[in-house]
Design a protein around this nucleic acid. Structure first.
Length: 273
DNA sequence: AACGGAACCTGAAAGC
DNA sequence: TGCTTTCAGGTTCCGT
């Protein structure tokens, strides 16, 4: 569910909860969150007794750097990390629990919840140097910025429509369906256009739209718990995402919705060309 | 190699 | 009210 902004918010809160902490007890409630063949016992062995040195993010992946090795967390569509008191009852959808002693000897129970279970909790095998999907990620817009010339060159090789191309994490890490939808509207580019047809100027507009979308959503994240914007009751904060059928903010014609490479896509067929 | 589509899961909302 | 259908912001695999 989360895209880059929500994952960055998760990284910041996890850094507060876990930075420098000693991991006392680990419990895996559902092994389906792990890679095939990895047992909960192996995860416990890899984590218990370790200290958390840093929390990193690349795209939608989180990396918990330990004094020996690392673990990776991907929130999938519905994952979130929450903090409880040690001894609190198991939460609904709880998949992994880390009971830790944080700075100032404060004990905390940090838990990973994931109803839909598209998320992953990855402990590397001793033989693996790194997580391949992590090292294959493209530039992270927030960490690396967007090099328009490099992006233009990369897109020039792709005949696929621009929107599904943007969702390829090797192109830009962390861009998801919402950011892609919004950025294409801001840049006034039709999501169906082949990526290779975009001019350098259009790629520049797209890059600005992506950064703007990420920064605006990140600015909305407050408090400790990850918020998935547009949760029940909350107004939809996006420009066109989720606004299909409503008037285009620019030309007032109704916004269309279609499926592109399997993903719902909102657009203004008049403004985006 | 590149692409579309299905699969992986489950909950919430919409439809009837 | 309650049952059924649809949809979901991600990734991966499979067949063409």
């Amino acid at each position: 569910m989360p895209e880059l902004p929500e994952v960055e918010h998760a990284r910041r809160t996890l850094e507060q909860w876990l930075g420098g902490a000693h991991i006392d007890t680990v419990h895996v409630h559902d092994a389906r969150i792990l890679d095939d063949g990895v047992t909960p016992a192996r995860v416990v062995r890899a984590l218990e007794g370790r200290r958390v040195m840093a929390l990193e993010r690349r795209g939608k992946w989180l990396r918990i750097v330990l004094d020996s090795g690392s673990v990776f967390s991907h929130l999938g569509m519905t994952g979130k990390w929450v903090r409880c008191e040690v001894g609190d009852e198991t939460l609904r959808f709880e998949k992994v629990r880390l009971d830790v002693t944080a700075r100032a000897r404060k004990r905390r129970s940090v838990r990973y919840l994931d109803p839909r279970m598209f998320g992953r909790f990855v402990v590397l095998k001793e033989s693996d140097a790194d997580l391949p999907v992590w090292s294959e990620l493209g530039p992270d817009p927030l960490v690396d910025g967007i090099d328009v010339a490099a992006l233009h060159a990369k897109l020039a090789k792709r005949k696929l429509a621009i929107k599904p191309t943007l969702l390829d994490q090797k192109v830009l890490a962390g861009v998801g369906n919402i950011v892609a939808t919004e950025a294409l509207f801001v840049a006034r580019i039709d999501p169906r256009r082949p990526a290779c047809e975009l001019s350098r100027a259009e790629v520049g507009k797209l890059a600005r739209g992506i950064l703007r979308g990420i920064e605006e959503t990140l600015a909305m994240q407050e408090g400790e718990t990850i918020q998935y914007v547009e949760e029940p009751g909350a107004p939809n904060p996006f420009i066109i995402y989720g606004h299909e059928g409503e008037p285009c903010p620019r030309c007032k014609r109704p916004l269309a919705k279609m499926v592109l490479a399997g993903r719902g896509t909102v657009l203004c067929a008049h403004c985006q060309r």
